[in-house]
Design a protein around this nucleic acid. Structure first.
Length: 478
RNA sequence: GGCGCGUUCGUCUAGGGGUUUAGGACGCUGGCCUCUCACGCCGGUAACACGGGUUCGAAUCCCGUACGCGCUACCA
């Protein structure tokens, strides 16, 4: 397929929804796979929902995700501006064309009248839609009222017939025209609604494939009618299945994190998040689940996108993020880990030690924020609190022997190194006649207060001689 | 209420009439590794919504029912 052009057209409402991220991803993959263009267009036509800083946040989040766009706000192509709020004159121009061709008409109805009408229709079990009250106002009256009264512009839907939507994912979907509402195209404040702006811009920007969420499927016939009225070619449509809450409702804020920024803050890797959402609705057809962006680009196709909604399963995301954390080159891992520790006030005194801690907990974390909890045992300075299980390992006389023996051995050496520690433990083994669990578990319990944790040699190095001596003394007194 | 879409293990999914005792992954779980936990590796658990057709044969095709979800705004 040549000259593919797709767009991601979010509305800047303050944060980027993970569902939007997946939509952006699929658009991006489709464009890259076909060697086409990926356009970012900001759909800021709702002044009531204007949020300070939302656009900046959108751009930054997108950059963090790694989905780079070819044309958009900070990368002007041939179709700028890419903010709909800056394209108002364009929409007005096309609205006038529609009106003069009798494809759209001004509507002066009050909100109250519309609301009452809707209630009555629902009461009568009818499809709620505009009743055409202002459809046939014409001549002088129309000119006069347009000048003096607040009004919107509505799309004039053909009263009968069928509009067919051909969807790449769902096949052909048919709609009876009589069920389609005379949608508002231009609001009384002069801003376009989504329906108008999206059709005009998609055409003007040469969009070939409209890949968007399933919630748009039902309004697609309105868009198709608009394309027909304008005499424009109709792009291909692909409506993506919804992302769901655990209770299978549309993924929303109330049931956990939905903002990409939330996942970023919690220490998820963009590669992992992308890989995870890619699999919510798409798969390659084999058993592979870990994909780099490059692999996704190579293998992605809309034909393999599912029809049904997918629950956003955080457990699997966590697992996958852990995989990515362990796959990271050590340098890159350390960079992010140290940054996380710094932001959370975790500091063992020097960089070398902080690095050792980060490395020690690496296999135990699923997100970078897990470092907080996992590094606790390295940081305390005062007396140690023992868990019940640890206490069981500390109490026996044989364990006390291990501690005293280890204490004297360690006092002999100037500094704890890996080598020194090995020989210390060797000597303790000889002296006490104990080995395996009998010797290691008491030491682990005495030093960390827990019966689980990173490998002891790693722990020991980070602790250093003084702290070890202090903890052994404490354990002996138990 | 109307319109539209959907329905395979708890979750993400493979499957496109016989190769299926329905495969993989997360989770849960047993084992191995090991000083422990984790990692890793090996194994187990668990599903074709229901009812009719079509066919020699249906998870796969058709119809209906049920259930779920979405839309139903001068929001996107």
């Amino acid at each position: 397929m040549s000259n593919v052009r797709v767009r991601f057209a979010p509305s800047p409402t303050g944060f980027v929804h993970v569902g939007s991220l997946r939509t952006a991803l699929y658009n991006y993959l489709f464009a890259r796979h076909h060697g086409g263009k990926f356009v970012l267009r900001v759909e800021d036509t709702d002044r009531a929902r204007y949020t300070e800083g939302a656009v900046e946040n959108l751009l930054e989040t997108l950059e963090w995700s790694g989905l780079s766009y070819d044309e958009g706000p900070e990368n002007d192509g041939d179709f700028s501006p890419y903010y709909q709020s800056q394209r108002l004159n364009i929409y007005h121009e096309y609205i006038e064309k529609l009106i003069s061709n009798n494809f759209a008409y001004p509507c002066f109805c009050s909100k109250e009248r519309l609301e009452k009408m809707r209630e009555e229709q629902i009461g009568k079990k009818l499809t709620p839609k505009y009743d055409g009250h202002c459809r046939y106002i014409s001549g002088d009256e129309l000119i006069k009222r347009r000048k003096s009264e607040d009004h919107v512009i509505r799309l004039k839907i053909p009263p009968e017939g069928i509009t067919k939507v051909s969807d790449i994912i769902r096949g052909e979907v048919q709609f009876q025209n009589e069920m389609i509402d005379d949608q508002v195209l231009l609001k009384s404040d002069g801003f376009p609604t989504y329906h108008l702006a999206n059709v005009v811009d998609d055409h003007l920007m040469g969009i070939t494939h409209v890949i968007r969420g399933e919630e748009w499927l039902i309004s697609t016939p309105k868009h198709i009618i608009l394309y027909e009225y304008f005499g424009w070619p109709i792009p291909r449509f692909a409506h993506l299945p919804l992302l769901l809450n655990p209770d299978r409702s549309k993924l929303s804020k109330r049931q956990g994190d939905v903002a990409v920024e939330d996942y970023r803050k919690k220490g998820y890797l963009p590669e992992a998040l992308l890989n995870f959402v890619a699999l919510l609705g798409w798969n390659r057809g084999d058993d592979e689940e870990i994909f780099s962006l490059e692999e996704l680009i190579a293998d992605f196709s809309l034909e393999r996108v599912n029809k049904s909604g997918a629950v956003f399963n955080i457990e699997k995301l966590n697992w996958m993020n852990g995989i990515y954390i362990r796959k990271l080159p050590e340098e890159k891992y350390l960079l992010i880990a140290l940054e996380t520790m710094k932001n959370n006030g975790i500091d063992a005194g020097n960089t070398r030690k902080n690095e050792q801690i980060a490395l020690a907990v690496r296999n135990n974390i699923e997100t970078f924020n897990d470092i907080k909890e996992r590094s606790e045992l390295f940081l305390g300075d005062g007396p140690l609190h023992y868990s019940e299980n640890a206490l069981e390992w500390i109490k026996p006389d044989s364990s006390k022997k291990v501690f005293t023996s280890m204490l004297t051995e360690i006092e002999k050496i100037p500094e704890i190194t890996l080598e020194a520690f090995k020989s210390v433990m060797g000597n303790v083994q000889k002296e006490t006649g104990l080995k395996g669990k009998e010797i290691w578990m008491p030491v682990r319990s005495a030093l960390t207060g827990l019966t689980e944790g990173p490998e002891l040699p790693q722990v020991i190095q980070i602790f250093g001689k003084d702290k070890i001596l202090r903890l052994l003394e404490q354990a002996i007194r138990v």
